[in-house]
Amino acid sequence: MSHHIIDLQDVHYRYPDGTQALSGISFRIVHGEAVGIVGANGAGKSTLLLQIGGTLLPTAGSIRIGEIVLSKKTVKEIRKKIGFVFQDPDDQIFMPTVFEDVAFGPLHLGWTLDNVEQSALKALEKVNCKHLKDRPPHKLSMGQKRAVSIASVIAMDPDILVMDEPSSNLDPRSRRQLIQLLNTFDHSKIIASHDLDMVLELCERTIILGEGRVAADGRTRELFSDEKLLAENGLEKPLSLQYQRLRVAK
């Protein structure tokens, strides 16, 4: 399956209020790749994700997912291919019970009821939350909410997972479980985050955004070792890499 390609060409976006958020972004992500998108606040991460999810359409340039070029008409098709995990699970989980929420996507794709139930249960099992299926969302911990919101997306069997800050507000153990979970998925993944250590563990490739442009695009480990590049873009070397250097110095 080589058609799960995300191809951005010279994408520009200007918000209605005049803020130029993206000014010429091009990259290509091939099937099965995991790509981290990092950058300082206001660098354009969220805007970029909203573009890929089809919420905002580029003011110039083009986005291609597989063979389909993103436009108003193709948004629906594209959303079937992309599983978008929002930053706040309280936005993502909107049905009154966990099971109903996970079943929402498949149900609205028009699957048969048996298929819906099966895929919802399978997705819950994948994130180890099957026992929570009858709970109302407000009785879940933050880590559980995050897992459920991921389940609600993978239940639709998307080709590409797009995640906005998946590790925010998680305690260390939940964060660790999340990383292990995401590592078991073989979808193409796009992960926007400030958690550089997580990006380092999950993504071979990273794109650094700065002021609406691609400041760097390359192997994660190499980019994150380049202290000058990181500092220019308001970032810091991930702790795990700093620690390594200390150990060598000893």
């Binding site: 089809g54 919420t55 959303r79 309280d90 079943a103 929402f104 609205h108 919802a120 639709m156």
Partner: peptide, 22 residues
């Protein structure tokens, strides 16, 4: 603002104006 985000989340999971439940 939250309502808008929820609407987006619903749209990205195939919401088409009608809510079906299992």
């Amino acid at each position: 603002e939250r309502a808008e985000r929820i609407y987006l989340a619903m749209c990205s999971r195939g919401f088409d104006g009608e809510i079906r439940t299992i």
